[in-house]
Design a binder for these strands. Structure first.
Lengths: 252, 252
DNA sequence: CGTCACATTGATGTCTGTCAAGAATCGTGG
DNA sequence: CCACGATTCTTGACAGACATCAATGTGACG
């Protein structure tokens, strides 16, 4: 394929954004420049803390991170998963200090993007502005789906739905095969995502396993029959807004 | 106070956005111009349907509307409440056709804003772009809080939390007093917001009532002791991002 | 005045939480 | 290399939250 592209083909940020908007070589160069690791974060280490002054924006380069809130007596709700190419706190540019936490789930490498840098993209460059808008709007869309998931599905289908999303989102950024992907969450974490207890997660996983819907091995999720899992939880990927765009072409 | 302001003081869109960004008279005039009723919608009537081509953006001028998704066998999850001054589908500018529905809850008047009009604001005028960003980011923040609410709280606290938000958000746009506000939702709707059954809503309302935490009368919610209700559900309004900005001052 | 949606209450069942106890896994240090 | 503690994972028994089924009452509206 097109050998003139100077930007790494595998850059997850670019791969992701190209699902939403067209990016020319210049755009891609700017994004590739943002996507440079500045530091690392160990599992469970906070990357953004609620209330911290917003000094800039953080971008997941490698690894998986997650948003969470603490409620009442210390119960934790995980609000989203951040994969490579996802912005942690783009909203802080406008909203100021975050109202929730972000922590590393696996060991992560993080890019720190200064405020003014983002500001320039968002409020001056209209094509990249559109790309960043697109990314936050997809995040919001995912959040809506999670809410519907939480409100209307039983715990087993909720977990199946999460697994479907996990598989697909990692495929988008090139981190998964067609039938399997990394699944770095422990059962206590799955519990905090789904709003149930660890014990119940364990029971549900057993059931999904004995049904032959999934297999977990070495922190990887295997889905022998993707269509069966999809049907089980009524997964519809529309909310991820992936207008399929063939890998090769970027219309400048 | 300042008598030179030509834009209606009570314009909910402007009132809301001024919590997030400074708007000069010119900005306010542009927003006031957007905020013109083009049509009405009866209760339960869809304003935006999932999959409809995005022809423009809709803005609630009067009344209350709500987002929802249909899951599986027809179960409905309500994903958000839209009050006067809220955009229904700002995201469609970037994302294209919506992935969920929006319908009127009470009789609404709606402003239809053409695509190119929004496009001009979002991608060319940086101060109003910031204002619209702010609005969608607050929407996203509310969504996160709803998710945490759903995942971690029992149904009675969930409902109390919803009532706290309803009271405060309506105060922001000038639609509520200090201890009471409109509460147009029926019990089946509350059920679809909270992810529980109508029957359970009825029982919880009875309990909150006998506890003296709330009173419902004529589709209005009365909260005799706001602090007690707030403490009951651990409501923290930070997620609404209301940096208090005194009514009188707009720094141009 | 009948209809229909909304609201209320009781009896019963299912999903999920809590409590309790082991077993398996993993990183760490001796 | 093995021992150790600390998580994680698993299973069982029981309890609580919420759903389902059923019946009745209420109010708006044609």
């Amino acid at each position: 394929m097109d050998a003139l592209v100077t930007v790494p083909r595998g850059n997850p940020l670019i791969r992701k954004l190209r699902h939403g908007v067209d990016l020319d070589a210049g755009d891609q160069a700017i994004l590739a420049d943002l996507f440079r690791p500045d530091r690392t974060a160990e599992p469970q280490q906070d990357i953004v803390r609620a209330g911290d002054p917003a000094v800039g924006v953080h971008l997941v380069v490698e690894g998986v991170a997650f948003r969470y809130k603490l409620v009442d007596d210390g119960r934790r709700q995980i609000l989203g998963l951040l994969l490579p190419g996802d912005f942690c706190d783009l909203q802080s540019v406008v909203l100021g200090p975050s109202d929730h936490y972000i922590a590393a789930l696996t060991a992560c490498t993080i890019a720190d993007v200064p405020q003014d840098r983002i500001d320039a993209l968002v409020f001056r460059d209209s094509r990249l502005a559109r790309a960043l808008w697109w990314a936050t709007l997809v995040d919001e869309s995912i959040l809506r789906e999670w809410l519907a998931n939480m409100g209307q599905r039983t715990a087993d289908r909720r977990l199946a739905h999460l697994f479907c999303e996990l598989l697909l989102r990692q495929q988008i950024v090139g981190a998964a095969g067609s039938h399997e992907c990394p699944m770095p969450m422990t059962q206590p974490m799955l519990a905090d995502i789904l709003g149930i207890t660890t014990i119940h997660v364990s029971r549900i996983l057993r059931d999904l396993r004995t049904e032959g819907l999934i297999r977990l091995q070495d922190r990887r999720l295997h889905v022998p029959e993707v269509e069966r899992l999809r049907a089980f939880c009524d997964f519809d990927p529309a909310y991820l807004h992936l207008i399929r765009r063939p890998e090769g072409e970027a219309r400048p």
